[in-house]
Design a protein around this nucleic acid. Structure first.
Length: 842
RNA sequence: GCGGACGUGGCGGAAUGGUAGACGCCGGGGACUUAAAAUCCCCUGAGCUUUGCUCGUGCGGGUUCGAGUCCCGCCGUCCGCACCA
């Protein structure tokens, strides 16, 4: 064996061997138990980020481990390849989005290959290829058939310079993030997916997702935002119609003192027609910002329309109707009744406009009708000042009012959701064309499936802002499939979140004539373990759950939940290095490569003077605290990098990158190499304690990997390595070395493959099985007993496992240290936990 | 405002209610070497009157023979949602 392991030669060699033997190709026909391990596929931005490396290393360890345990493993990789950065590159650099994207994919694939991930590249897919998005178009048409796709006028953020719709996240302080232009609200006809039809189902399904983090389930629950209450009508005093409101507090109906509608409520518009002042107020409301800070400080404002409505429980009781800036048109009915005593917003409003504030829920003895103070009471209590409801609990009163409303016909119990339907139209080129045709006589006509895919034209130009599909000379002009007249294609493309809502289904099978084979999905789905960033907790993960349910709903598949277990991993962080620029007082940042890091300080290589070491934060280009995966793989080899990604920090937490840390990992790679070199198949002699340590470690590491506690598995491997190093030569020692190699194999596949071959073992580690353990060895035959006096540790005893209570007590009392601690005081009580401890209470 | 997570050495972090600090990093000392690198060994929570003792898991209480762990109340940090009626 060579003195040192040389990753620069070995890594590539083994990667080619795995490729050549197609080690990681999933066999659909296999009889073995199946495991589908999936990491969120990357957007091909150009370079792999260290965060990707952490994500894929975790999945890779699990996939390789599962394979060693005899599973048929599906571990695929693909590219979330549509999106705006490609169009931005086209505008800035004059390259075609397709060429730019495909080049990036090639580069990133090469980067991933260098890390030795056990991926089934035969199933690679890119969402920007017609072979993928054509099937997406077919599925979209299926959902349209089933009534889950519709068109509606909707207000969007419109950037007048770039001539495109912007997502909310792309509007910064009311301006387009790219153009800087003031964003306008525009009404456009948009395509929607009816996710709200599944609101309750998506909510209920969360309960069954035991393998998901509680945090993510809660976030989705809050996002769906179910609330139950009453929808009822307040009739206009002078007219036949009325204003519908939704409330979760029908129990407080007798505390009502006004009705308020949103500024964009139809009633407000009708009133404004003859009231210029109201029209001005409405315009003011619409102009108001929507950022969190603005809403926090915005004062409650209203405009009295002069109209009054009847209280539904008492026609003689009249309430004023306001147009108010705090009522949202998007939620409920766009109108509320105000009960100031028991709702903070209503109270703020009532105090400002001097409206009655009537107590109807009593928190204790206070039952007077006059409510004082500026803090609404929203807790539980007894209903007061509410005629027939007096004395009821809040819940009783809610039910009673709903029952009465339904009986008398002025309202009914209703469930509202915060979740809105999913608007999927994007006025962009680089996305899946929405497969519809607009015909003057036939209206909106779906593209016949036989004409799919609707392929994006290649010859587009980005010199002019806006969607190039709109101004392409020929692409959009087609004959109507229904009547044959000249018609135009839909030029909007689908939100890229649609692409990522079903890619995990396509990995299971990739037929050319349909999106997937249901049998393949039945075999592989759900994904056993999905791993990705917490930033997808809501959007991607909710959309994927919805899409899966929708496909199940129309009978295409038989799976409802796509991801049985979800793991959200932490970020990779790094210190920052900076100096204050004396010219402007601003910090100038330096990259880790420009800096020499000592024990407590860091110096700039260029001038040898100190730089400031800043906080450990998320890697970002602006702070220059980034490391490039290629550079570190060049320098330390793939296995050291993989080992670092798994060490120290628990995988759900942030991992601080450090030079010292990666160097420690590279040292350990060499240390293992030397240890593997001491394997001696011919050696004799038994070492029971080492056998025991070996099997205990094998069992514990398996448990840790299955729980994704890689940091603990790493610590145990260090321990076993140390134990073997200290042990004298024996057959047990060689057996332990062999077991250690197999334990480390999922994490350091190149090193272990090279050592396996050197040790004269047959086959590949990639195809080896996980070591068996002898259950008898997992049980200790000696235990250390803690001896406490009044709960404080005074001595320890080493005894045979299973030593009797009486004997333990006697041994404890015989201890000098214990006698000294007792100071002659009589022992009153003795607690003995067999094989654990003795506690003497004096 | 609502919801959630977290708080343990110089640092990342271990610890089914039962010996706090496993394992790694940093640091210190030593061996080998002409020297360095590499490697190996030892030490490394704080304090003290150092065979040992005291203190110690954000702060204050409580439950328990025994609390980092359970309960109550604070403080701090981070994350998500947010005028959702």
């Amino acid at each position: 064996m060579t003195e040192r392991f040389d990753p620069s030669a070995a890594d590539g060699r083994w990667q080619r061997v795995w490729d050549g033997r197609q080690c990681f190709r999933a066999d659909d026909a296999s009889e073995k138990p199946r495991s589908y391990v999936l990491e969120m596929f990357p957007y091909p931005s150009g370079r792999i980020h260290i965060g990707h490396v952490r994500n894929y290393t975790m999945g890779d360890v699990l996939a390789r481990y599962k394979r060693m345990r005899g599973h048929e493993v599906l571990h695929p990789m693909g590219w979330d390849a549509f999106g705006m950065p490609a169009e931005n590159a086209a505008m800035e650099k004059g390259v075609h989005p397709g060429g730019w994207t495909r080049d990036n994919i090639a580069n990133m694939k090469a980067q991933l290959k260098r890390l030795g991930f056990a991926l089934d590249w035969s199933r690679e897919l890119a969402t920007c290829e017609p072979e993928y998005y054509g099937h997406e178009q077919a599925l979209f048409l299926d959902l349209y058939e089933a009534g889950l796709v519709y068109r509606k006028e909707s207000a969007v953020n419109w950037d007048p310079v770039d001539q495109t719709v912007l997502a909310n996240e792309q509007v910064i302080d009311g301006r387009g993030w790219r153009s800087g232009a003031l964003v306008e609200k525009r009404k456009l006809s948009q395509w929607f997916l009816k996710i709200t039809q599944f609101a309750n189902d998506l909510l209920a399904g969360l309960d069954g997702l035991a393998g998901w983090p509680e945090k993510v389930r809660l976030m989705q629950e809050n996002w769906i935002g179910k609330s139950q209450g009453l929808r009822c009508t307040f009739r206009h005093v002078a007219r036949q119609d009325g204003i519908e409101v939704f409330t979760t507090r029908p129990d407080t109906l007798y505390g009502a003192s006004f009705v308020a509608v949103a500024a964009d409520h139809p009633f407000a518009a009708r009133m404004a027609a003859n009231a210029p002042e109201l029209a001005a107020f409405i315009a003011e409301c619409k102009r108001g910002g929507t950022t969190a800070a603005e809403l926090e400080t915005a004062e409650k404002q209203g405009f009295d329309t002069g109209i009054t409505v009847e209280h539904p429980l008492d026609p003689d009781w009249h309430l004023p109707v306001y147009v108010a800036n705090f009522v949202l048109m998007e939620y409920g009915t766009g109108a509320v009744f105000g009960c100031p005593a028991h709702d903070q917003r209503d109270l703020d409003f009532a105090r400002k406009y001097d409206l009655p504030v009537r107590r109807v829920v009593s928190e204790g003895d206070e039952t007077s009708e006059t409510f004082h103070g500026d803090e609404a009471y929203t807790g539980p209590g007894r209903i007061v000042n509410s005629r027939w409801m007096d004395g009821m609990s809040v819940d009783e009163a809610k039910a009673a009012v709903i029952a009465r409303a339904e009986h008398e016909g002025w309202g009914k119990g209703e469930t509202q959701y915060r979740l809105r339907d999913w608007g999927v139209s994007r006025q962009r080129y680089w996305g899946t064309p929405i497969p519809f045709i607009h015909c003057e006589s036939c209206g909106v006509v779906p593209v016949p499936k036989s004409q799919l895919p609707v392929v994006l034209p290649e010859d587009v130009d980005f010199q002019v802002p806006g969607n190039p599909l709109v101004r392409h000379p020929t692409w959009k002009h087609v004959d109507c499939p229904r009547c044959g007249q000249a018609a135009v294609r839909e030029t909007d493309t689908l939100d890229t979140f649609v692409d990522s809502s079903w890619y995990f289904l396509r990995f299971a099978s990739q037929p050319g004539d349909r999106p997937f084979y249901p049998e393949a999905i039945a075999k592989w789905l759900p994904v056993e373990q999905y791993i990705g960033g917490i930033e997808h907790a809501i959007l991607h993960l909710l959309y994927a759950r919805f899409w899966t349910r929708a496909l199940a709903h129309i009978g295409l598949i038989d799976v409802k939940e796509p991801f049985a277990s979800l793991f959200t991993q932490g970020m990779v962080t790094h210190e920052t290095y900076s100096r204050i620029d004396p010219a402007n007082g601003q910090p100038v940042y330096f990259s880790p490569a420009e800096v020499s890091r000592g024990g407590d300080n860091a110096t700039l290589k260029a001038d040898g003077a100190l730089v400031e070491i800043g906080r450990v934060i998320k890697m970002s280009k602006s702070k220059k605290n980034v490391v490039d995966p290629d550079d570190i793989v060049d320098h330390y080899g793939a296995d050291a990098v993989r080992w670092f990604m798994l060490s120290d920090s628990p995988p759900e937490r942030d991992l601080p990158w450090s030079e010292a840390g990666i160097e420690g990992c590279a040292r350990f790679v060499q240390r293992l190499w030397r240890l593997f070199g001491q394997f001696d198949g011919a050696g004799g002699g038994e070492d029971r304690p080492l056998d025991r340590k070996r099997d205990q470690t094998v069992a514990a590491v398996a448990e840790d990997i299955e729980a994704l506690s890689f940091n603990k598995a790493v610590a145990r491997i260090y321990e076993l390595a140390s134990a073997i190093e200290k042990a004298p030569p024996s057959a047990s020692r060689s057996a332990a070395i062999r077991a250690l190699l197999l334990l480390a194999a999922p994490m350091m596949p190149h090193l272990t493959e090279e050592a396996w071959a050197e040790m004269g073992e047959s086959g590949l580690v990639a195809e080896a099985t996980w070591p068996e353990v002898d259950p008898a060895l997992l049980v200790e035959d000696e235990v250390t007993i803690a001896v406490q006096v009044k709960g404080k540790l005074r001595d320890t005893l080493t005894v045979a496992k299973g030593t009797a209570r009486e004997e333990l007590e006697a041994l404890a009392l015989a201890s000098d240290k214990v006698q000294r601690a007792l100071e002659g005081v009589q022992v009153k009580k003795v607690i003995v936990v067999p094989d654990r401890l003795v506690n003497l209470v004096a």
